[in-house]
């Protein structure tokens, strides 16, 4: 078996009285797409900072590609590419100059970095914008260039901190495709996100972090296994259900689990397939006309909710903060 490319053991980080990360342990195999999932303030960015050299763990051990770098990640920084949660390139420089500058930081010669920069601009769809100043780019363009800057030196490990937060759908889709293609070429990817569906779509293994603690980590397959046979139905009505209505539903359909969702929606979950009509009839009798009933397959979101008790809507809301 290969040596883990990232091995974190009992990492801990405190800021004053606040424990940002507590006893975080995980290992990432070469070529893996590892997702680090949690709400805002869970400790995702602090963990990335410790892994990349922007923060020093108070305790714990860290090794990257077999290099012991607890307290000094410098020795392994040439192997790491980082895409921070904010596009932090230089507004006064053009896209091309920004990439060439980032290449120079990793010791790339003039010709090599210019060629690589031009190639990357092409691959992220910014070939024409490359001569324009970074300060004039749209948010999506900035994110794409920041990703290109993170891989200018072709690092075997790429850390991505919330790469699609706050950008338009089209750009987000393009970025996901870029990351996916990059992973397909053998790059190990460490992705933090609060978009559960993004992690489910991209990652092969996922860790959930809540309040600084890694509460669960496993392959996507293993995480989804317990909910594989579960049947889920989303119902949408004209108004939301009260506590009493939910209690009545639970009494009448004891084998189902009811969870109110955003707006006037209700999710119904059962260990086995179930008929829709008795539920619809029950709700309509009580003055809740059902406008829509959609069956959906169980997702990572359902696993996340059951493990952490945090709803995906809360995650999204926090992401906008």
């Amino acid at each position: 078996m290969n040596e883990p490319i990232v091995l974190a053991t009992s990492l801990q980080k405190r800021f004053g009285n606040i424990t940002a990360v507590q006893d975080a342990s995980f290992s990432i195999e070469p070529g893996e797409f590892f997702g680090f999932l949690g709400p805002n303030g869970a400790g995702k960015t602090t963990t990335i900072n410790m892994l990349t050299g922007l923060a020093r763990p108070d305790s714990g051990r860290l090794s990257i590609a077999g290099i012991e770098c607890t307290g000094n990640v410098k020795a392994a920084q040439h192997l790491i590419g980082v895409v921070p949660d904010e596009s932090n390139l230089y507004p006064e420089l053009t896209g091309l100059d920004n990439l060439a500058f980032c290449g120079a930081l990793y010791g790339m010669g003039r010709t090599a970095r210019k060629e690589r920069a031009a190639l990357l601009l092409e691959s992220v769809g910014l070939a024409e914008a490359g001569r324009r100043k970074f300060g004039g780019y749209s948010r999506g363009m900035k994110r794409k260039l920041t990703i290109a800057a993170g891989i200018i030196h072709e690092p075997p490990i790429l850390f991505l901190d919330e790469p699609t937060t706050g950008i338009d759908v089209e750009s987000a889709r393009h970025i996901r495709k870029l990351i996916s293609d990059l992973h397909a070429t053998g790059t190990t990817v460490f992705l933090t996100t609060h978009y559960i569906e993004e992690a489910e779509r991209l990652c092969s293994r996922v860790a959930f972090i809540v309040n600084g603690r890694v509460v669960r980590q496993d392959s996507l397959e293993n995480l989804l296994a317990p909910v594989k046979g579960v049947s889920i139905l989303s119902l949408c009505s004209t108004r939301s259900l009260e506590e009493a209505d939910l209690a009545a539903l639970s009494r009448s359909f004891p084998r189902y689990v009811f969870n109110p969702e955003k707006g006037n929606a209700l999710s119904v979950q059962s260990e086995e397939a179930f008929p829709i009509s008795p539920l619809v009839a029950f709700l309509e009798e009580r003055g809740f006309p059902v406008l829509e009933a959609v069956r959906r397959r169980p997702s990572l979101e359902d696993v996340f909710v059951s493990v952490t008790g945090i709803g995906s809507e809360q995650m999204k809301k926090e992401g906008k903060k």
Partner: peptide, 14 residues
């Protein structure tokens, strides 16, 4: 402040 200094800190130079 703009966090572009982080980019320098993340590079493998002393």
């Amino acid at each position: 402040k703009s966090r572009s200094f982080d980019r320098l800190l993340l590079s493998p130079i002393t």
